[in-house]
């Protein structure tokens, strides 16, 4: 049957040499992107959920914890280097990566492809949410945010739902990002190892989502399950 390949490029006049590819900077930028999601951003996220969990103890303890953080030495440079810069980098570079992909879920609706698509969208949501969150709780309060400030924001149903969506997006993005990290840094290779890593990182993502929602719950319903610690 007449079905030959109309293959490859037109003829070059002579044989031509092809050098090996050389490492590109984008490799380092990409690796920094995935690393920055874990350290410092992921680490800060854990710390942030931890200190906000004081809301589940008492208003005083919450304000005390906030005050302790707001009065660390070298506060602004530390914030800039460990939080703002990494988040800005991770966010903007993430958008760049996002722009290089084309989701094809409608054709290939496999599990991991869903996770890839969700990672893109939750990343975008998280970036907007974090920007808004920092603006409202850090800059609007001149860096002196208290329990009262947060509780006021949450009283608005619109802002509250944004918080819920934001927390879920961030938790998913972090949990799935950990799995991505395990793959991208070659920490897991075999299919079983990949699957186990998915369970573990998935559990971490769920843990963050649950803790985050409980904190919101605490703010909205004045629910303080650990209040007896402070008594």
């Amino acid at each position: 049957m007449p079905a030959k390949a109309a293959a490859t490029a037109e003829v070059t006049p002579e044989a031509t040499t092809v050098p090996a590819a050389v490492p590109s900077r984008s490799y380092i930028w990409d690796k920094l992107h995935s690393l920055s999601g874990i350290v410092p951003i992921g680490a800060f996220l854990a710390e942030h959920f931890w200190s906000n969990s004081y809301a589940l103890v008492s208003i005083d303890r919450y304000n005390q914890a906030s005050y302790d953080l707001q009065t660390i030495p070298w506060r602004v440079p530390v914030e800039a280097l460990l939080i703002w810069l990494p988040i800005l980098y991770h966010g903007f570079y993430g958008v760049y990566i996002w722009s290089k992909g084309e989701s094809n879920l409608s054709r290939y609706g496999y599990g991991a492809n869903w996770m890839y698509a969700l990672q893109r969208w939750t990343g975008l949501i998280a970036f907007v949410f974090i920007g808004w969150h920092v603006y409202v709780e850090r800059f609007m309060t001149q860096g002196r945010s208290t329990y009262f400030d947060v509780a006021t924001t949450m009283a608005n149903p619109l802002y509250l739902s944004f918080y819920v969506i934001g927390i879920l997006a961030v938790s998913f993005h972090f949990g799935n990002g950990l799995w991505q990290f395990a793959n991208k840094w070659g920490l897991v290779v075999g299919r079983d190892a990949q699957r186990k890593a998915a369970w573990i990182t998935g559990a971490i993502g769920v843990l963050f989502a649950v803790v985050g929602l409980l904190i919101i719950f605490g703010f909205v319903f004045q629910w303080r399950p650990f209040q007896f610690y402070a008594q």
Binding site: K4, A5, A6, A7, T8, V11, T12, E14, A15, T16, T17, V18, P19
Partner: peptide, 14 residues
């Protein structure tokens, strides 16, 4: 050899 410029391939030429 192709990458070393010693062979030229003409694929899709009959």
């Amino acid at each position: 050899f192709e990458a070393e410029g010693k062979i030229r391939k003409l694929e899709g030429w009959m």
